[in-house]
Design a protein around this nucleic acid. Structure first.
Lengths: 214, 214
DNA sequence: ATAAAAAAGGGGAAATATCCCCTTAAAAGT
DNA sequence: ACTTTTAAGGGGATATTTCCCCTTTTTTAT
């Protein structure tokens, strides 16, 4: 009987190693590699002949996160199924991950048996969506405004991040090598896009959307 | 040879089960139980004769968190050593956990061997402090103000929360039934206490300290 | 009881932020 | 080739924030 090859990607070594042990005990599966960030997956897939059938992917990781890595796999190796495994139960994150191509989304507080079942399903039918995830999707349909849909340009993002410091606009301008007047344009553009009336509003948006992390 | 009895406490079932497998493979240890929050530890310890020598404790858990559970153990069963195992690397959390009586503090991204070594050390000499933790302690000594120790008065807190909205100070004054000039006093007092130079600084503080939740 | 601290309010000035409307040059789309 | 969009910058006015120094009344400590 052929085992299903799996790659585990998680930056918490203790977790990924423990998971390795766990999955290796499932008779259907073989852990091909345990990697610690998205970049490692890209490298692995680019340099090995034997590829995994399933990648069990964390989301928050350094260098290249799970969303970017999943997108890359969808674009370059669509035959590899990604199953997301994260602690993050936030709607936005789930949506981003699914849009990037994940075939399922599990939370880290599930029972090992669920993981085993999910892996088998992903292999057999190509996906595994829990009730949890489905509900989240339903919720996000109900709300008209999906905040994260607002796309900011590189420079706007840079400006927004700087707004979340105690710099004045003049200082921000210097930092961005722009005239204070140009920086004002950025401010006004963001006020409109993000429906903010003051700089505080920009800061609140940036933090809510995790554009800046505190 | 007597094995060292351990209890694992973590609300992420997948992680705790995987950890269980991992530790059970270490020949020196025996996993007595896998529990999912602080309250379960208190119940377990209260109702069993065979007690663990070490509790491997997560921090963020529902019902009763790791800090409270560790404090309870210190007060009621001081012979049981608690080794904290968390993803949270924030200074405040580490300090709280150590003050509550933890004999060490590991991050979840360590190598399994470190965990094994830490458990052995905790059993042998009673504690295991990594370089990481020691540095954090040193840092917190260097800064005179240990953030969460800053105590704000009721009214200051109310004002601070309002600062985290798009209201102007004049509007905040009306809302608090104060003159704009009095509100200015609050602002200046908070600038000093929280070492902020602008209102943005106040907002960042309030969010960091979870005085306002986004 | 009395000194000290806290709470409330103020004057006046300079710096910043906010608003609205406008110009020019480069880039992108068609 | 031509229009549209974007990036960069400006003028000028008003509102808000920030700063520093001050008074009065009420609370709190000793």
């Amino acid at each position: 009987m052929n085992k299903i090859d799996i790659i585990i990607v998680d930056d918490h070594l203790l977790f990924s190693q423990a998971l390795n042990g766990l999955i290796s005990n499932f008779k259907e599966f073989n852990v091909l590699a345990v990697l610690s960030n998205g970049k490692d997956v890209v490298d692995y897939v680019s340099n090995h002949n034997k590829l995994p059938q399933i990648v069990l992917m964390d989301i928050q990781m350094p260098i290249m996160n799970g969303i970017e890595a999943t997108q890359w796999l969808k674009d370059n190796r669509p035959e590899i199924k990604v199953l997301a495994l994260s602690m993050e139960a936030e709607e936005n994150t789930i949506l981003k991950m699914l849009r990037a191509g994940a075939k399922g989304y599990l939370l880290k507080d599930i029972h090992p048996r669920i993981l085993q079942h999910a892996l088998k399903e992903v292999h057999k039918v190509g996906f595994y969506y829990t009730e949890n995830i489905t509900n989240t999707l339903l919720n996000s349909i109900d709300k008209p405004e999906q905040s994260s849909a607002i796309k900011l340009k590189e420079r706007e993002l840079e400006f927004l991040k700087l707004c979340c410091s105690e710099m004045t606009y003049k200082q921000i301008a210097e930092h961005m090598f722009l005239s204070p007047k140009t920086v004002e344009n950025y401010r006004e553009a963001l006020f409109e896009k993000l429906e903010a009336k003051t700089r505080i509003g920009l800061v609140l948006y940036a933090i809510k959307e995790k554009i800046v992390i505190l």
